[in-house]
């Protein structure tokens, strides 16, 4: 299908109407996935709805003690927000591993999420963080956990006419922090072979009071490994707890063999990265001397 229109709505309502009125229309924010897919013929978008001119979609605002990140906010802009970096360093670093600086000046976390790649770097960090997203659609606005968006590679749960308008990060609890690591063959420019995000809270004695571990590129969608979090809760991150956590992560992996990695390697690395990520988050949380 040839691309026949390029829309620049100024309100969310206009954007939703355009998307609802043309099932072939695709929202464009950073374009770093969509344009590549259109150029290579993998996406047959019939129309583009550029959401970057919608007031309020580009930027970060505080929402109580949490953050609301507009869907058109490029990844590099996250680094400029000191409060966000202090509260959610793992989310910011995950978003800033995508592609190159050139790509991150365009790419957005909302786009990373809606592209529904199991290897999306920002998504494990967002899932670990307990982030939600705001969805606008023909029947109004709804809010869902980010992990509810991707349902399979390149497939989302968004309904016709719906678009993600913002990603919300909750209040950073005292004694908590997060981290994200990925495994790639080079040092930059690669798609994650495996990624791991960890978000933990540590009490004054250094005991883990909560932990959320999410794994990317190890299953058709990013996986929140609840057992991994449970394995850490109540522990002081001793070797046994860490190994139990890593084993839970490995158990949750259902990866594929492809050009970027083997099943065995992905499972093994998921455990290694989960351990390393937890230790970074713990240090950031002040849980180590």
């Amino acid at each position: 299908m040839a691309l026949s229109a390029f829309h620049t709505p100024e309100t969310i309502e206009q954007a939703v109407a355009l998307l609802a009125g043309d099932p072939s229309a695709r929202p464009l924010s950073g374009g770093t996935d969509l344009i590549v897919q259109m150029q290579s013929g993998r996406s047959e978008a019939g129309a583009i709805v550029d959401i970057k001119r919608i007031a309020g979609l580009n930027g970060i605002r505080s929402d109580g003690d949490g953050f609301v990140i507009g869907a058109a906010t490029p990844c590099t802009a996250l680094k400029e927000d000191a409060a966000l970096v202090a509260a959610w360093p793992g989310v910011v670093e995950a978003a800033n591993l995508i592609g190159s600086v050139q790509v991150r000046n365009r790419a957005t976390m909302a786009g990373n999420l809606c592209n529904a790649s199991p290897a999306a770097d920002s998504v494990p960090a967002l899932v670990a963080a307990g982030a939600t997203c705001l969805i606008a659609g023909p029947s109004g606005e709804r809010e869902v956990p980010v992990e509810a968006i991707p349902v399979a590679p390149s497939k989302t749960s968004l309904q016709a006419g719906e678009m993600v308008t913002a990603i919300k990060l909750p209040k950073r609890s005292a004694g908590g922090s997060d981290a994200y690591l990925r495994s790639i063959p080079r040092t930059e420019m690669d798609i994650a072979v495996v990624g791991a995000g960890a978000n933990i809270t540590v009490d004054a004695e250094g005991v883990c009071t909560s932990a959320r571990i999410a794994i990317g590129a190890a299953a058709p969608t990013v996986v929140l490994v609840e057992d991994a979090g449970k394995a850490l809760e109540g522990s002081g991150f001793d070797d046994a707890a860490m190994e139990a956590m890593a084993q839970a992560v490995r158990n949750a992996c259902k990866p594929i063999d492809d050009k970027r990695g083997t099943i065995e390697y992905r499972i093994a690395m998921a455990g290694v990265l989960a351990k390393r990520t937890v230790m970074i988050a713990r240090e950031r949380a002040g849980g180590t001397a």
């Binding site: 063959p185 080079r186 420019m189 050009k259």
Partner: peptide, 23 residues
């Protein structure tokens, strides 16, 4: 990398991984 169908699986700089400056 040729797949079982005899097609090149990595016909781009993303997966034909040449060294980048940070390597």
């Amino acid at each position: 990398l040729y797949n079982e169908d005899g097609k090149l699986d990595n016909p781009g700089f993303l997966d034909y991984r040449m060294p980048v400056a940070s390597d």
